[in-house]
């Protein structure tokens, strides 16, 4: 496959089975470079499973899948180098300071110490959070932790960033700031792949796919989806599909 192609992720007939249960049933979709791709679905629809496969955390049962131009079966380590990931479960070290978390994750991505200092300074500046550099994560409110986790996920300047329900449990203002960060990131040619339960957030995406019981039921821009289903907002689109 051509690494310079317009698609950052191509998925064809992806299947993932856990015993008898089929979590992902022949998923096929492409994600374009620099796009914000919304991955929606009810709880248990198979979103996280699919995302974990794309991140190289889990191997698919079958299907032809490329992430950042690399094959998910054979080139997982190369994939890992090109992606950032923010999991549903909170993933910063509570007993380390903000700076130490940046340093650790930067370090295991192989960044040089100087580069780590530069990126930490830059990202914290943008967040207006430089003053809290030496605070322990356990002393920081949840909304800030989420924003820090996102900053750490993009610290090594990945080409794709995967966000698994990044805004669950945070207040509306923080959610808004979070999406501003996502936009900002996407504007720098970084592809954003995001799962969410909030339908207002789906409106912000370039394109969304809606999953139901392991299958993709719809995939288009929010505007087109609303038109197809003849409804006013994404919430109703979702209810119609996932019902």
């Amino acid at each position: 496959m051509n690494r310079q192609s317009q698609y950052m992720i191509t998925v064809k007939d992806m299947v993932k089975k856990f015993g008898q249960f089929t979590a992902n049933d022949h998923l096929t979709f492409n994600v374009k470079r620099g796009e914000i791709f919304g991955f929606l679905g009810a709880n248990g629809a198979g979103k996280t499973t699919a995302m974990r496969i794309l991140c190289g955390l889990s191997s698919p049962t079958s299907g032809e899948i490329y992430v950042a131009g690399y094959n998910v079966y054979r080139e997982t380590e190369k994939i890992k180098r090109s992606i950032g990931y923010m999991s549903q479960k909170f993933s910063l070290y509570e007993d380390l300071t903000v700076k130490e978390n940046f340093r650790f994750y930067g370090g295991i991505y192989g960044l040089k110490r100087r580069k780590i200092r530069e990126r930490t300074g830059y990202l914290l500046d943008k967040l207006n959070f430089s003053h809290a550099m030496n605070q322990k994560i356990s002393d920081i409110p949840l909304g800030w932790k989420q924003k820090l986790a996102f900053s750490i996920a993009i610290m090594h300047e990945p080409r794709i960033v995967f966000l698994d329900e990044p805004t669950s449990g945070v207040d509306p203002i923080t959610r808004r700031q979070f999406w501003e960060m996502i936009y900002e990131t996407a504007s720098q040619e970084v592809t954003v792949f995001v799962t969410t339960h909030y339908m207002d957030e789906a409106e912000y995406c370039s394109r969304v796919s809606i999953m139901d019981r392991g299958k993709i039921k719809a995939l288009d821009t929010p505007a087109n989806l609303k038109q197809t289903y003849r409804v006013a907002n994404m919430n109703e689109v979702f209810v119609q599909i996932a019902r």
Binding site: C55, G56, L57, E77, K78, K80, R81, I83, Y85, S87, K89, F90, S91, L92, Y93, E94, Y105, I108, Y109, G110
Partner: peptide
């Protein structure tokens, strides 16, 4: 338990490292 292992597994870190 904390979930940080997943964040590590998604990095290109090698097993032996």
């Amino acid at each position: 338990e904390m979930g940080t292992i997943e964040q590590i597994n998604v990095t290109p870190i090698r097993k032996y490292q």
